[in-house]
Design a binder for these strands. Structure first.
Lengths: 340, 340
DNA sequence: TTGAAAGCGCTACCAC
DNA sequence: GTGGTAGCGCTTTCAA
């Protein structure tokens, strides 16, 4: 009888009951030992037997069962980014994960490709994360925030171009980026400014507010701003450059350094002098921009450190009843090099 | 009595029992309705009442409880990448997630920053994923594979430079990349070849095999190969360029296009003619490399499509007892432009 | 067509 | 010190 289920059990995943049986103790004891429960003292020989049994069976605790029992998780859910970001963002993201782990959170990126808005929020909520940190690519709606909070999320934090009702918002106002770029160009005497709008999907959440910022910065300065759709390939850039003279522009803010480098080369191939005939400015302050001739002017974006954000998450989790506070955390400043 | 726990319940997360109570049915019925269970017929009025109750309460099912009951998950775990990758890899990753979602898997990237080897495997195993697809940055050991399989993972797939015992391996032999580069250089008459070794952490898993491939390709050709440590910043590149003449090299394979662009600029600033005095080749075939003058030669890497890999994952999950098969899936070829 | 109840793996109370 | 056991939220037989 005690052997009958063994054949099946061997193929099956070991549970704490299996460990208990092998060690000749109760499941409770197994739990105490493996969790180092402080409030209960277990003799050293027993501890060793339990640990050896666990090791031998290759026992790994079942996170779902644990959190079901506990009534909460320590999971911080980051809706996975689908947009290629620069190295700076990458560093930030890495820092954030590292810092959260140090605070004993389990960091999980949830692939939300193909979901949006409330569907995404529901999918996230199923995992019962203690916090959700949205990087602003999947539209987080007030209703989505509500779904998450009702499902037990203690903190919903949005690093988005716009603020979202109900969430702690770390507003990264992308309009500032476009604003900086255009202000820089205007100060250097430019009056007819193109603004590159990437055709690549996923970038529109960034491109649109940057464009708005550009328009706003140009208002009352006498400068005009013109959107320029551009795909990230040489053909598209060459086509744009070919009709450059007809556009009558004396400057261009090219969304970011990647697009700026692409366009600058195309313009140079059309024998357009930079910055003489046309000034070019990007954004992100990539190292590669400094390697071009002329060196690419850019908008440097100061990102909050991952560690700081992690602490904010932790704070919000610990005091969930505090009213969500907004934080302005993106600084942007134009960096003048040679292309403007 | 029926009202007493309400005060607490209101602040609490709604469960299917709450939905059942509000709809005036049993929990079983709720489950049937919300899961559209085909094997049981529920009257339309009841269905509506249940759905309305769920909606009103903002009910979201508890994934942990569900999978605990089911005894398995549909979670595919991707150990999160901590290394900045090029747009090509990004596209691949995006495709993979999309395709897996279409196959009804829940895709989760698990941040494994600061864990390694078996610790990481144990952490992943706690989530009981049905499959793990490692992108080869966290060392996946045979023991780690064993831990995962014992915890119920039906498939462990490794996209790694080297194969791992017990796992389905999609070998992306990075040595080929280095080999291609050096073969290209040798064919163009170069005999003293530097190989850039990035100083940035996380890249060594790629750099080392690429270097080995370079060495192997040079063997018996009379060419010599010399490793050149380089950090990704201008100072490091300038320092390397400053002692270039002393190195006596007539070519350099610069790990990838980013490092190649950095180094090429530094060499040009030292008035070293490219490709006259020194040939430069990168890898990844970035668009930006084509924008430089001279245009950067590179190694183009053909990546498997995400869809294909997703199907492989699905296949492996459905037939877990098949012996793990290895697949060679990375093609590499040198692309000659102007810098070599 | 609906309901009652068992049980997934785990932990935390209470007994012993 | 250690064991028995209730119950977290869910699905799914089996009975009604």
């Amino acid at each position: 009888m005690s052997q009958t289920p063994k054949q099946f059990a061997e193929r099956s995943v070991p549970t704490s009951a299996d460990v208990a049986r092998l060690a000749g103790v109760s499941r409770a004891t197994v739990s105490y030992v493996l969790n180092n429960t402080a409030s209960v003292r277990i003799s050293e020989p027993t501890r060793r037997r339990v640990r050896e049994a666990a090791e031998e069976l290759g026992y790994v605790p079942h996170a779902a069962a644990r959190s079901l029992r506990a009534g909460h998780t320590r999971m911080v859910l980051l809706p996975a980014t689908s947009v290629p970001h620069g190295p700076q963002f990458h560093r930030f993201f890495h820092e954030l994960q590292w810092a959260l782990r140090r605070l004993d959170y389990t960091v999980v990126q949830y692939g939300s490709v193909g979901l949006d808005g409330d569907d995404a929020a529901r999918a996230w909520a199923e995992l019962r994360p203690v916090a959700v940190v949205s990087l602003g690519e999947v539209g987080l709606t007030p209703h989505g925030v509500d779904i998450l909070k009702r499902s037990g999320a203690k903190a919903v934090i949005s690093l988005a171009p716009r603020r979202v009702e109900g969430a702690h918002c770390l507003v990264m106002d992308q309009r500032e980026v476009g604003g900086c770029a255009v202000t820089h160009l205007v100060q250097r005497g430019r009056r007819a400014i193109g603004v590159v709008m990437p055709r690549e999907p996923g970038l529109e959440h960034f491109a649109q507010p940057r464009y708005e910022g550009a328009v706003r910065a140009a208002a009352d300065t006498g400068a005009r701003v013109e959107p320029l759709p551009l795909a990230y390939d040489e053909e598209s850039a060459a086509a744009l450059a070919a009709r450059w003279h007809g556009l009558g522009l004396d400057a261009v803010y090219a969304f970011n350094d990647d697009y700026a480098m692409l366009l600058m080369r195309a313009l140079q191939d059309e024998r357009i002098d930079i910055p003489g005939q046309t000034a070019v400015i990007g954004a992100d302050d990539l190292l590669l921009g400094r390697l071009l001739r002329p060196r690419l002017s850019t908008v440097h974006i100061d990102m909050v450190t991952g560690r700081l954000l992690a602490e904010l998450v932790d704070q919000a989790v610990r005091t969930p009843d505090d009213r969500p506070r907004d934080h302005e955390l993106m600084g942007a400043r134009a960096v003048h090099r040679e292309s403007t």
